[in-house]
């Protein structure tokens, strides 16, 4: 008799992954336990025999870590593969399953980190920041609702895509259309982040030169803004990017460097926050 996973079991597996993929995180096993919890309902439904259960569960004790939102597609795919194995498919064994998992971990993490964490979340946060200007809770509520609907239904979609399509599911991600979507979304992200920086980041100099009569004849900030509004902010961001992307400095080192820059800048009068009680 053909074994077929019920929708209820698949949903239980998905929910276990959705909630539990990182709850028991450690540097050593990362998402492995989350994966085991996602596979358990499936294994329990597919196999009655304890030895078969053990064999199936042992497959998923192999290390797993990827970008968890997009990585849902991998969990869905293995659900489909496990079903095929329970039905006696010859070409599905531990090696196929773990080969697939290990092979997809890296690319999915790379795409997921830049697409979800590096683009979608910042865009949503950018819009939310705009809505929360002046201290209104509206933006925060907007982000909470939109992001969670996106994450839940997006991951659910990916899980079932993976389950139904198997290996074809990832073609969508790494194929030509996926590439075009990624490229366009990252362009959208770039523009929004530019607007976010101009709106929310303000690097300003207080450097002013006075003539003998005590009147200012050079207010550097004013002059710079005539050239390109917000140029100091843009320059500082690009320098930080250069240090991290090209010089491979860690964010913490760059932050420490900025402390030094700020200290020197205050000493020479380039920066002055003009504090008053």
């Amino acid at each position: 008799m053909e074994k077929k996973l019920s929708k209820k079991t698949l949903l239980k597996s998905f929910h276990n992954w959705y909630y539990g993929h990182l709850t028991c995180f450690s540097q050593e096993h990362m998402q492995t336990f989350g994966y085991l919890c996602a596979m358990l309902p499936l294994v329990e439904e597919l196999y009655q025999d304890e030895d078969e259960k053990a064999k199936a569960m042992n497959t998923y004790t192999a290390f797993f870590n990827t970008e968890p939102q997009l990585g849902t597609v991998v969990v869905g795919m293995t659900a489909g593969l496990e079903e095929a194995r329970a039905n006696g498919a010859d070409d599905v064994d531990d090696e196929t399953i773990n080969g697939l998992r290990a092979g997809l971990m890296g690319p999915v993490a790379g795409i997921g980190d830049s697409l979800v964490v590096g683009t979608v979340i910042p865009i949503l946060l950018g819009i939310a920041l705009g809505m929360s200007t002046g201290g209104s809770p509206l933006g925060a509520i907007f982000y909470m609702v939109v992001w969670n609907l996106f994450a839940y239904f997006g991951m659910r979609f990916l899980y079932f895509k993976g389950y139904n399509l198997g290996a074809k599911a990832v073609e969508f991600l790494i194929g030509a259309q996926g590439e075009a979507i990624r490229d366009s979304v990252s362009m959208l992200g770039g523009i929004v982040i530019g607007a976010v920086s101009a709106t929310w980041v303000g690097v300003k100099t207080s450097l002013t030169l006075y003539n003998s009569a005590g009147e200012p004849y050079l207010e550097l900030q004013k002059k710079l803004d005539e050239v390109f509004p917000g140029i100091l902010t843009a320059v500082f961001i690009i320098i930080c990017w250069f240090l991290m992307a090209k010089k491979r400095l860690s964010p913490i080192k760059v932050m420490l460097l900025l402390v030094v820059v700020a200290f020197v800048g205050v000493l020479v009068g380039f920066f002055d926050p003009n504090l008053v009680y």
């Binding site: 980190d113 830049s114 590096g118 683009t119 910042p122 990252s186 992200g189 770039g190 982040i193 976010v196 920086s197 929310w200 980041v201 303000g202 690097v203 300003k204 902010t233 500082f236 961001i237 690009i238 320098i239 930080c240 990017w241 240090l243 991290m244 992307a245 964010p251 760059v254 932050m255 900025l258 402390v259 820059v261 700020a262 926050p273």
Partner: peptide
Amino acid sequence: VGSLLPCVGIAILLKQI
């Protein structure tokens, strides 16, 4: 420093794109 730090945040993001 407080006014400079956001530059690092934006730069981390730019590193992605």
